[in-house]
């Protein structure tokens, strides 16, 4: 009991001394500026009619950078998040113990860094647990996490025929031979993020799903209905890297 009190006291003193605060990141999946719905039929910028059924992605290795270029990195073992469109709470990331200050950039990885893809199983807990949270987000035959997963149907307007599409994008660069590296480190300019006591900042990241199909190169679904482990995945990763942008910052 004494020990616990001591720890509590130490924690309180530490918190006051460092003035560490929490910051929330909210990821908002959108299509043409409106909240993404799996019930709605959409048209991609290339003209395909689509209905989505899965959108999951890993966000990891989160950092905040101040104007001097100093960065605060979220401790790595607690910096892996799996966001699933159908699980609302998964799309809000709460960061605690962020040192007070003014920050100008938010940096995160879309996916899972290469080191973590090859660590032993004791370092794959939480969202990285292949026997729990990471179900369906891991390739077993070609060991590694799926970074970004988008699935659905495309519907031909002429004959109403439906065809499934599946985009499972991963690839950490290879362990003993060099191979595809689809790890994307995204830097989001923030102008100014103020972290201080009582401010409770909430950063919104808009995820413009329609731009998955055209932000760098146009993607016609019927030409690439299934992209997983293959060279075209690099182009899709380049496309989706661009779809994560700042929505806004508010203080609650």
């Amino acid at each position: 009991m004494k020990n616990k009190l001591f720890l509590l006291a130490a924690f309180v003193i530490f918190s006051i001394a460092s003035n560490a605060q929490s910051v929330q990141l909210q990821f908002k999946n959108q299509f043409n500026g409106a909240p993404l719905s799996f019930d709605q039929l959409y048209q991609t910028p290339i003209g395909d009619s689509v209905k989505f059924s899965t959108l999951n992605y890993f966000i990891s290795n989160i950092e905040l950078v101040d104007k001097k270029g100093n960065s605060y990195k979220v401790p790595q073992d607690s910096s892996y998040f799996l966001l699933k469109h159908q699980n609302d709470s998964s799309k809000t990331i709460s960061l605690s113990n962020i040192p007070a200050g003014k920050y100008q950039q938010l940096v995160f990885t879309i996916g899972v860094d290469s080191v973590r893809n090859t660590l032993d199983v004791s370092r794959r807990t939480g969202t990285l647990d292949v026997g729990a949270a990471a179900r369906g987000m891991y390739w077993v035959w070609n060991s590694g996490y799926i970074f970004f997963k988008l699935e659905g149907k495309t519907i031909n307007q002429v004959d109403s025929l439906r065809k499934n599409f599946r985009y499972h994008i991963g690839g950490y660069g290879g362990y003993d031979s060099k191979t595809i590296n689809n790890i994307k480190v995204r830097t989001i300019p923030l102008k100014s993020l103020v972290v201080k006591k009582g401010k409770n900042p909430v950063i919104t990241i808009d995820v413009a799903v329609e731009r998955f199909f055209n932000s760098i190169i146009p993607v016609k679904i019927l030409e690439h209905p299934s992209v997983m482990w293959g060279d075209f995945s690099v182009k899709l990763a380049n496309n989706y890297e661009q779809i994560f942008n700042l929505g806004g910052i508010k203080y609650e």
Binding site: T118, V121, G131, Y138, V140, N142, S143, Y175
Partner: peptide
């Protein structure tokens, strides 16, 4: 590495492959 194509570099993750195949 493990399997004919060496797709799994770590022994810890070998069993997941036949289990999920």
């Amino acid at each position: 590495s493990f399997f004919w194509d060496g797709g799994v570099p770590k022994l810890d993750f070998v069993p997941v492959n036949p289990i999920e195949n």
